[in-house]
Amino acid sequence: MWRWLHPYAKPETVYHLLGRWLPWVAGTATLMLAAGMVWGLAFAPADYQQGDSYRIIFVHVPTAMLSMSLYVGLALSALIGRVWQLKMADWALSAIAPVGLTFTFISLVTGAIWGKPMWGTWWEWDARLTSQLILLFLYIGVLALYHAFSDNRSGAKAAGILAMVGVINIPIIRYSVEWWNTLHQGSTLTVFERPPMANSMLVPLLVSILGFSLLAASLIFQRMRNEILRQELRRPWVKQELAELATQQPAMKEQS
């Protein structure tokens, strides 16, 4: 039944498959992001309470959402890596972590910048902000552990265990605005009800979310390809691939 899946467990196949998808995903991401940013910054109406400062939402909400869903993806690949001993799941972990880390960083910084004019402070030790900061530390920890061992498998194992334990933080972030009294406003988007947001703001926000998701995907593809090459460096197909690339760039040959 799952026979058709087997070729996809081969690093070489995955490398070429991701390479074929990468330009399309990255291209669509760029278009979507450009559209979402221009729409959000210039065409969406100002908020009746927050004026134009609310436009930060068009980076803040997509990156914050993705920082959490990327972490779930990270933990899932850690689980697959531990349970089925799949090397490529471990490599995916190392490809997802830097992207999630950057998105968490962006959500924290844009949140602080938005907080200054609206709340009068850059930072407050409230539930939402603190749990998101812990997410940043979890990402840093996973990345550090992954690269801390000279034996790559031990690193992946340690990083994977931290990644799985850290999942407990995700529902805490998600529900922090409901469980505790916090400065942070409630969820902008709701799955089962119509979000309490005008369409003129909601549509550019959804476009931005789609754009950032595709951007995350293309960054992960890029990093996954790099990690496959790095791990399989001794294999003939990698040597061939790198040799081809070297002949395509003769300037680099002279440099080294």
């Binding site: 940013m37 910054l41 100002a46 004026g51 134009d52 400062s53 436009r55 930060i56 980076v59 803040h60 990156t63 962006i106 910084v109 844009t110 910048i113 938005w114 200054k116 004019p117």
Partner: peptide
């Protein structure tokens, strides 16, 4: 100027 919030909006977008 972003209705007086220019510094914050552009700083947020710039850093991102």
């Amino acid at each position: 100027e972003m209705g007086g919030y220019g510094f914050y909006v552009w700083l947020a977008f710039g850093i991102s």
